[in-house]
């Protein structure tokens, strides 16, 4: 085996669970999540940082998992869309709001939208329209025209405020 194919052992926490695995240096974080860990909720649209479908939370802040090497995630905390459910695996407030307000059609962009919206609402549960648009500005949707996505986020925000 050539030196370049050497695998590197990493250890990271994904959705609250600490895992150790060996990865090839060239493996992207998005491919690691999907192919090695079977967390297929994270979608890959473009694989070069344009669409936002692969967004995840890295140590609580949204990033694009196709723009990070899996080895670079060593020691970090990651939340994927799978980690956004309630503890009993029922949909979380945001996910439910996306269902209720029809925030998706084909669903391809949805995991990324949910992650971006989650980061926004964690910091601010009463965002303005401009703040919502800015938060999802890096996520492309080819179906909805964005209106229902924005309404879903507004619905989730109001439910979060009610829940206190």
């Amino acid at each position: 085996m050539s030196e370049a194919m050497r695998k590197i052992e990493i250890s990271l926490t994904i959705n609250g669970r600490t895992q150790t695995l060996a990865v090839e240096p060239r493996l992207s974080l998005s491919d690691m999540l999907r192919d090695e860990l079977r967390l297929n909720g994270t979608h890959i649209g473009c694989e070069h940082g344009v669409c936002g479908a692969c967004s995840i939370l890295l140590d609580g802040v949204p990033i694009r998992s196709c723009l990070m090497l899996a080895v670079q995630a060593d020691g970090h905390q990651i939340t994927t869309v799978e980690g956004m459910c309630n503890e009993d695996q029922t949909p979380g407030i945001l996910q439910e709001a996306f269902q209720d307000a029809h925030g998706m059609q084909c669903g391809y962009c949805t995991p990324g939208m949910l992650i971006s919206a989650q980061a926004l609402l964690t910091a601010n549960n009463d965002p303005s329209l401009e703040e919502i648009k800015d938060a999802i500005g890096g996520n492309l949707c080819r179906c909805t025209g964005y209106t229902q996505i924005i309404e879903s986020i507004q619905l989730a925000a109001s439910r979060m405020r009610e829940a206190g």
Binding site: L58, I63, R64
Partner: peptide, 9 residues
């Protein structure tokens, strides 16, 4: 520059 996801990295 970019979006929150890209500015964070």
């Amino acid at each position: 520059v970019g979006h929150q996801q890209t500015r964070n990295r």
